[in-house]
Design a protein around this nucleic acid. Structure first.
Length: 278
DNA sequence: ATGTTTGTTCCGAT
DNA sequence: CATCGGAACAAACA
């Protein structure tokens, strides 16, 4: 679900709206099964002030002190909502942080229908360890085509698979990877070993274009409405999908093919994305 | 009842 | 060792 543009939208909106607030109380749903160590870590946040919010790959990171970071991973169906009381109407609420600044109260809710999401309270050292597990961030301007090509070639698999491997390239999920490959005219089944410097250059440019557009449009909200921003509003990138969910190619009017690669639904146009082998 | 889903991890097979 | 496919986590929907 949330990929980089969605997570980035959430973390930036949180930053604007909760920095300076203190954690007044924390409620954990009794139906939500998390390790007791995490429950203890959460309770230790009471009384601390939110100093900063950012994201590391698809993780949302709240800084509550030099050595105390609250990290959420939303996986498929996680949501972060910021509500002002009274506010009892949200579904699948697992954790509520009651925040206070002066006389203002806000409720930061972590919701998760399928419960594949993760929450953790990490020390600076453990946050650094988490950070080190992620590969290059395509939007980082210091990433060159050479770095990117080297990362791609470090694994022998399909280009689609390597784009989704967070240890190699971080932030892309199924939707944005699918659209970026279409934009770069690369067949998703192409072997990483067959990617040329020219196509790597075009792919990096396409990934940046699609991620920046996703950020500008505040993410993608599919028909199931699972992703919404912290205020409960939908994004609009779904109105600009290049090939994801489509039946007919917008460019050539040919029939879009739908296949599974590593179990993930993959759309591609056989005409615009021919399979090339060296 | 079956198949599908934006993510990640682990296991066994190859 | 590298990689793949499937299962698992759990819930809603068509």
């Amino acid at each position: 679900m949330p990929e980089f543009p969605e997570v980035h939208t959430i973390s930036q909106d949180l930053k604007k709206n909760i920095v300076g607030f203190k954690v007044k109380n924390i409620q954990i749903s009794k139906y939500y099964k998390i390790p007791s160590s995490v429950q203890v870590g959460l309770k230790e946040l009471i009384g601390k002030e939110i100093q900063d919010v950012d994201n590391i790959a698809k993780n949302i990171v709240l800084k509550l002190g030099e050595n105390s970071y609250l990290v959420f991973h939303l996986a498929m169906t996680g949501r972060i909502l910021l509500r002002e009381p009274p506010d009892e109407t949200d579904n699948w609420v697992k954790i509520v942080l009651e925040l206070q600044k002066d006389n203002k109260i806000k409720h930061l809710k972590f919701c998760d229908m399928r419960q594949f999401g993760k929450v953790a309270v990490l020390s600076k050292n453990n946050l650094d360890i988490l950070t080190s597990k992620y590969g290059l961030m395509p939007l980082n301007e210091t990433v060159s085509m050479e770095n990117f090509l080297k990362a791609i070639k470090s694994k022998k698999t399909t280009i689609k698979n390597v784009l989704l491997d967070q240890k190699i390239i971080s932030g892309l999920g199924n939707i944005y990877a699918t659209d970026a490959l279409f934009l770069a005219n690369i067949n998703p089944k192409t072997s990483t070993q067959d990617i040329t410097p020219e196509s790597a250059k075009k792919l990096l440019k396409s990934i940046r274009e699609i991620l920046n557009e996703g950020i500008k449009n505040r993410g993608s909200t599919l028909p199931d409405k699972m992703y919404v921003d912290i205020f409960g509003n939908s994004g609009s990138q779904q109105d600009h999908f290049r090939i994801y969910l489509k039946n007919i190619c917008d460019v050539c009017n040919g029939k879009v093919e739908f296949i599974k690669i590593n179990g993930r639904g993959t759309y591609f146009c056989p005409t615009c994305q021919p399979l090339k082998t060296l």
